[in-house]
């Protein structure tokens, strides 16, 4: 097991100005990771690959993760002056975390047999700022995995030699692994529908109204 935190400190001194943040993992696996700013990703990756003490020459796994926009309600205790008297008042503060797409890289070293070192990089948002630098020029193993993330999550990788859809057909217009993807409504018969399935069954048995666009309706 390698010490991710010390690598983070070393990286900060070796590559000053790079956005590197240590992300702890509270679960029993204790696989902590490094959050790298997207623009510095290539420099950090190259440093990790070339460093004689680490030699991360094997990029095992590249994962896309979708994080929706979420609001966190937190109760904050505040001291307020009420009627000239100091009182402790609880206040709910709503904090909105904008959504983003995340790419997680698992690095190992074959000659030194250590790992995993986990890197993560985040896009600005989920709609128009979705570019990250490609690591395919450094590790070829990222080639298909980045294409898959581009296909299923919609992250565009700058510098990828051949960025096309990997799994879905080329005419497909969405990114189906995103959390808010709505699947096509091709209802399949259930022998004893109930609840929401019954509602869908009823919707499919009424003939489609004439003003609805015919393409979105299924038989």
């Amino acid at each position: 097991m390698i010490d991710t935190e010390s690598i983070a400190n070393e990286l900060k001194t070796a590559l000053p100005g790079c956005g590197i943040e240590f992300v702890a993992n509270p679960s029993p696996s204790a696989q902590s990771s490094l959050l790298i700013q997207g623009t510095d990703l290539v420099a950090v990756a190259q440093w990790l690959k070339d460093h004689s003490e680490y030699r991360f020459d094997y990029l095992s796994n590249v994962t896309g993760v979708d994080h929706l926009e979420k609001t966190i309600k937190e109760k904050v205790k505040k001291t307020q002056v009420v009627d000239g008297e100091e009182q402790e008042v609880e206040e709910t503060v709503e904090q909105t975390i904008p959504g983003y797409l995340e790419v997680v890289y698992h690095l190992y070293s074959m000659p030194l047999r250590h790992g995993p070192l986990i890197l993560r990089a985040r896009t600005g948002n989920r709609s128009n700022d979705v570019a990250l630098p490609s690591l395919t020029p450094i590790w070829r193993s990222a080639e298909f995995q980045e294409r898959e993330i581009f296909d299923l999550y919609g992250v565009t990788f700058d510098g990828h030699p051949d960025l096309r859809r990997l799994l879905m057909w080329d005419e497909f217009e969405d990114h189906p692994m995103r959390k808010d993807y709505v699947e096509p409504d091709d209802y399949e018969y259930e022998p004893t529908p109930h609840g929401p399935v019954l509602e869908r069954a009823n919707a499919h048995q009424t003939p489609p109204s004439t003003d609805a666009p015919s393409e979105t309706q299924s038989d």
């Binding site: 022998p191 004893t192 529908p193 019954l198 069954a201 009823n202 048995q205």
Partner: peptide
């Protein structure tokens, strides 16, 4: 539609 029609739901 020539080979397949959606089956009628029993309880709908």
């Amino acid at each position: 539609p020539k080979t397949w029609t959606p089956p009628q739901s029993v309880r709908s």
